Simulated assay, not measured.
Amino acid sequence: MDLRRQLMEGRVQVPNVGSVAQVARIHPPFIVLDRATEEVRPVTEYLEDLALSDCSPLTCRSYAYGLLRWFRLLWLLEVE
């Protein structure tokens, strides 16, 4: 059975890699780091736009965690 099908059936656990980090800048106040602790630049660019729309810093944090979950799946599937 291929990995995608196993994922859809809930038979594969997505690895707990990467993290969300609070940074000392205003826009965005949180960033997503990959498994090598490198900043995931496309996520940062999205969070910058979100932060500039005058949302709460906690909204940026919530979106960062959501995007981290998405990227974990992409990394598992080896999608660039």
Rank of each mutant, 00 (worst) to 15 (best):
L74P: 02
R4T: 15
E48A: 08
R69I: 13
E39T: 10
P15A: 05
W70P: 00
R25M: 02
Q13W: 12
V79W: 09
L52E: 13
M1K: 00
V20T: 04
C55N: 14
L73P: 07
P15S: 06
L67D: 02
F30S: 01
P29D: 02
R61Q: 15
P57N: 05
I31T: 04
M8Q: 14
P29R: 05
L50I: 03
S19K: 08
L73S: 06
P28F: 01
L58M: 15
R4E: 15
I31K: 01
E45I: 04
L73N: 08
E9A: 13
T44Q: 07
A21M: 13
S62W: 11
Q22K: 06
R11L: 15
V32K: 01
L7C: 06
D34R: 02
T59P: 06
Q13F: 14
S19V: 07
V40N: 01
V79N: 07
Q6S: 11
P29G: 05
D49P: 06
L47Y: 03
S56H: 13
R5K: 12
V17P: 00
I31R: 00
S53T: 14
Y63C: 11
E38S: 15
L52S: 09
G18N: 02
L76E: 04
I31A: 02
L76M: 07
S19E: 09
E78C: 14
A21D: 15
Y65L: 06
T59Y: 13
A51V: 01
R25E: 05
I26T: 09
C60F: 06
Y63F: 15
R41K: 11
E48N: 10
W75R: 03
E78G: 13
V43F: 07
S19H: 06
R72M: 05
S62L: 14
I31W: 00
A21S: 13
L33Y: 01
E38W: 12
D49G: 10
L52Y: 11
L73I: 10
D2K: 13
L68T: 03
A51F: 02
D49Q: 10
M1N: 06
R5C: 08
P42I: 06
D2Y: 11
Y63M: 14
R69G: 08
G10I: 13
T37A: 13
V17C: 05
C55Y: 12
A64K: 00
S62P: 08
R11W: 11
A51G: 05
V79R: 12
N16D: 14
M1D: 14
R69E: 12
D2M: 11
V43Q: 00
T44S: 08
F30D: 01
S19C: 14
E38A: 14
H27L: 08
M1W: 12
G66K: 11
L73Q: 12
N16V: 10
H27W: 10
M8G: 12
V12P: 02
R61S: 09
R5H: 12
F71G: 00
M1Y: 11
L50N: 01
T44I: 05
S56F: 10
L74N: 06
R61F: 10
L67N: 02
Q6P: 08
E45T: 08
N16P: 00
P57Y: 06
N16Q: 11
R4P: 04
L7I: 13
V14N: 03
P29E: 03
R25F: 01
G10E: 07
Y65G: 00
R72F: 04
E45S: 10
E45W: 08
